[in-house]
Simulated scan of single mutants.
Amino acid sequence: MALAIEPSSGSAGAHKWYAIIICQLLHADPKVPKNKIADLKSDVKKHLERATEIDPKDPFTWHLLGRYHYENKDYKEAINYFQKAEGIKSRFSAANLYYLGSCQVHLGKKPDAVDTLKNAYLLQAKNKHDGKAKSEAKRILLSTLKQKVEDIEAKSEW
């Protein structure tokens, strides 16, 4: 409905939330026909990109666009969006830092990943997504990146 009455200047929130709803549908409804999944994923990207055109200062939309690319295993592209979000509002989300660090791990950038994931772990969680991201950041730091607990719990200079 919001997109149907969107003003000519656009509504970033309507596009962002439409994309979020499509993502929720894709994750929650196993009855989505397989031949519709690619079209729905394309709609997610299209609406997130439109939202960033209308409101380029919303770090959450840039984060969501990064998540889109992360879930499609396009880690180089995802990093660009997570960094863009950080550039707009540094440390706004432990989840954004976690996904940025995870991309760095996938791309073999271990020193960057350690710093980023450490900061994700040390950042205060603001919601359940941040809480899960903090836990995952700690798990990757300890298991994959072989960090010591005392090292990851020390305050960072970042």
Rank of each mutant, 00 (worst) to 15 (best):
T52Q: 12
S11R: 05
Q147M: 12
K89A: 14
A19G: 07
H106W: 08
F92V: 11
H129W: 14
A38R: 14
I5C: 08
Y75H: 11
G131M: 12
K110W: 04
L48H: 00
L25T: 15
E71H: 10
G13N: 10
K109Q: 15
K146H: 12
V114L: 09
L48Y: 07
I20Q: 13
E150D: 14
K57D: 05
H106I: 00
S42K: 08
G66E: 06
N96W: 03
K126P: 00
K118Y: 01
T144R: 13
E77D: 05
S156F: 06
G10P: 04
E86W: 02
A4V: 04
A133W: 01
S93Q: 08
N80L: 11
Q147G: 02
I88Y: 04
A120R: 03
S143L: 09
L3N: 10
G131I: 01
A12F: 02
Y99R: 11
E53G: 00
A113V: 03
D112Y: 03
H47T: 03
E136N: 12
H27I: 00
Q147R: 08
T61V: 15
I140F: 12
W17S: 06
R50G: 03
N127R: 07
I88T: 06
G13K: 14
T144V: 15
G87D: 15
V44Q: 01
F92M: 10
G13F: 10
S90T: 14
K41Q: 13
F92P: 10
K126A: 05
H47K: 03
I22G: 08
I54K: 01
L48Q: 01
R139Y: 00
L3R: 11
E77R: 07
L48S: 04
T116E: 06
A125K: 01
Y18L: 01
I22T: 11
S9M: 07
K16E: 13
I140S: 09
N96R: 00
M1C: 08
K76Y: 05
Y75Q: 07
S8K: 11
D58R: 01
E150H: 10
E153Y: 09
P30E: 08
A78R: 09
D151A: 14
K57E: 06
N119E: 15
D55G: 05
C23V: 07
A2L: 15
C103I: 06
L100F: 07
L122R: 11
P59S: 05
Y81P: 00
R139H: 04
T61Y: 09
K36V: 03
A85L: 09
G10N: 03
T61S: 14
A95F: 08
Q83L: 11
H63Y: 13
T144D: 15
I5Y: 13
S156T: 15
Y81W: 02
K134M: 01
L107A: 12
V105F: 06
F92W: 13
D74M: 06
A78W: 09
S8N: 04
G131K: 10
I37F: 12
L117G: 07
E71V: 02
S93E: 11
G131S: 13
P30T: 02
E53M: 06
T61F: 07
A113Y: 04
L100S: 06
L97F: 08
K118M: 03
V44E: 00
